[in-house]
Design a protein around this nucleic acid. Sequence first.
DNA 1: CTGAAAGCGCTTACAG
DNA 2: CTGAAAGCGCTTACAG
Lengths: 336, 336
Amino acid sequence: MTTRPARPARLGDVASEAGVHVSTVSRVLNGSDDVSVRPETRTRILETARRLGYRPNAMGRGLKLATTGSLGLLVPSLRNPVNSPIVRGAFDRAWARGFVLVLAEDPGDDHAAEDAYGRLVHEGRIDGLLIQSARLGNPLLDDFAAGIVPCVFLDRRHPGSGRNVFMRDGDAGCLAAEHFLALGHERLALLGGPPELDTVSRRKAGFLERAGDTVAVEEAGLTERGGFEAMTRLVGGPKQPTAVFVANISQAVGALAALREAGLRVPEDISVLCHDDDPICEFLDPPLTAIEMPLVELGVAGVDALIGQIEGEPARDVVLETPPAIVERRSTAQAR
Amino acid sequence: MTTRPARPARLGDVASEAGVHVSTVSRVLNGSDDVSVRPETRTRILETARRLGYRPNAMGRGLKLATTGSLGLLVPSLRNPVNSPIVRGAFDRAWARGFVLVLAEDPGDDHAAEDAYGRLVHEGRIDGLLIQSARLGNPLLDDFAAGIVPCVFLDRRHPGSGRNVFMRDGDAGCLAAEHFLALGHERLALLGGPPELDTVSRRKAGFLERAGDTVAVEEAGLTERGGFEAMTRLVGGPKQPTAVFVANISQAVGALAALREAGLRVPEDISVLCHDDDPICEFLDPPLTAIEMPLVELGVAGVDALIGQIEGEPARDVVLETPPAIVERRSTAQAR
DNA sequence: CTGAAAGCGCTTACAG
DNA sequence: CTGAAAGCGCTTACAG
């Protein structure tokens, strides 16, 4: 490893070392191969740049090009576990395509969202925004949807924006219902998430479509406590279900606790199916049957769509082709 | 809400609207109160800037000031659950102090780390780096430790760097041992994490110091499977422990599964104490007694230390004062 | 009290 | 084939 100089090399350093003008260096460094420079000059410049470890300064370049090489990632709340596979997919793809990811949090209140907008978009820190937030009805989102800045709504649709990247959540709901029906269950229940979440409501719609409207529904926050309380209500009801579809893994852990407390056995007394597969599912009691969604792929697709917009392609909705899949473990069984 | 113009206002826009020179605008906008301008001019400028929703362009400002207003956050791997309270603390504090957080992943191999260095530091995208990564022995880290760029090692010490911000992990180990000892346990075990992690090894040292060297030790990755396998080894050993201190919540879930499979009851047959409290602990079977660490505070302190360096203060180690605390639930009990 | 100039590091027409 | 200039948006001595 060469010793690193105190100050990173500038274009001017490369130019003087190579005995040419900065503009020439700039041209060979990021011009296409067809820029006319004498081959030996080109070689000399390339070699010098490499030797000095030259990298263009992002500020200088950005100022000139009105481009940052950064993408903003607006997540709902760092308080809730960020859906890490999505972030990972997005991060990896962005990095691979030469972009860096800037974190922002949508803290709920409009004032703060306004602030995030200002800091990122308005100060010119990013080229585009990945919005995983999107409480429906936030006026700020309408601005984004209108296309002020390249943006995509990730895992949430903003109706009419034409910038939505999402999964087949409706199909996940159908799949869950079909799984239960195939096992002979007749009293199904849905332990759903907050209905204002787009994914949650599409999943619900899919589930109800297949399962019919006799399904018992309880909705709660996507937390252990939410799952615990909703499940307690569900089994305390008049028509106790024999199979329940739970909105996420946190809820499922809480739901399992509620069932334990109610003295109900899984899957003997009640089958539990969890949305989103996770390593933890395998180690719960009993190991949870789950629906696996293409989360990493979603992050990747979101970034690709965003960069597409940045490069001038027209915005469009994209729904991932990869279908939801059941990962069978031991928490669901034949009705008896 | 005012209609947002297509192009954000520039300094020049404010200047011409207010009928003054850009330099004057700049001076009143970020000069201290004592810059000499006629009060009415100042008011007019302030008013115009507000009306146009002016925010300084980060590139222009950054280029001039050699400052970005961004902090890099180098996390071990997005594959493992990022320690979200730490990130949250860091994010909130950075945001509050006017900095934005840029995500980077230390993907393990040196080549890629070099790449992260180049993209963030070398291209001048950040003012400083929060390193939560730090596989000991990565040569890149020595560069950082040498102070090429402001940086702090967060929740990991880089020996001799004088830039470490960390918690009282040794005390957490002691506390765990004391908890078990106070309950009358004599056959203690440690289900530890990878020993190359600084936190893990300090915790281990603290635990062994109090518990004596008869402690059974198994080390494993910080995953459910790691916990499962290590716990299986532990209870299969010659001298079965009656109390075990587990390195993190993922391991604990796996460990509980292993105990179930071995037919051991918690806490009747064996007490389990989990490092790092988490909402999930309350809903496991049995609810897990845990050690709560000041994770959010750690993120906050890391950012404060980093900004301190950026502002020219000498770097120094800081260890959080907040002590580890036991959150008692039902997985630990009197020895019998 | 305010303006004009220089310059941060780059890229891109435009000359030559 | 290569150089010189202008300009992206800002800030900061320096004049006046």
